[in-house]
């Protein structure tokens, strides 16, 4: 029992020391930005998933690099640009729709054109 208590004490002390050492210097707002950016950047070494959810060393490195960029007052777009310039647009997850609206509007445009064509054809036929 005493050994178990010692083990858990060491584990939790180490856990908090480790968590405390990460991304030092970021305030609460900056940490929120870091989490948001990390949620929207794909792990380049993994098949799926963002760098927040990945344990790959490259994901940890990228998160640290993003933290440094936040501290250096880079905007979100500048950070996304740095990442996509290095790894390609593949690295960008959710925010990509804001950056390439045409890709996501294309199906809607196609639908509107189809409806127009069918409507015009039906009206002409009924005459």
């Amino acid at each position: 029992m005493k050994n178990l208590a010692t083990f858990f004490s060491i584990f939790f002390i180490n856990f908090f020391i480790y968590a405390d050492q990460l991304y030092t210097g970021l305030d609460e707002q900056q940490l929120k930005r870091l989490n948001h950016l990390s949620d929207n950047i794909r792990c380049p070494k993994c098949s799926y998933g963002n760098i927040s959810s990945s344990n790959a060393p490259i994901s940890k490195d990228l998160k640290e690099e993003i933290a440094q960029m936040i501290l250096a007052k880079k905007t979100d777009d500048e950070i996304y640009d740095t990442m996509s310039e290095r790894y390609g647009d593949y690295i960008l997850l959710n925010d990509v729709e804001k950056r390439n609206p045409l890709i996501f509007l294309a199906p809607l445009i196609a639908l509107i054109i189809s409806i127009l064509v069918v409507t015009i054809y039906t009206i002409k036929k009924s005459k």
Binding site: P44, K45, A56, P57, I58, D61, L62, E65, R86, Y87
Partner: peptide, 12 residues
């Protein structure tokens, strides 16, 4: 620390 490789675009 892998910092040079990171800037080089190395993923592993």
């Amino acid at each position: 620390d892998g910092k040079y490789a990171l800037k080089l675009g190395v993923t592993g």
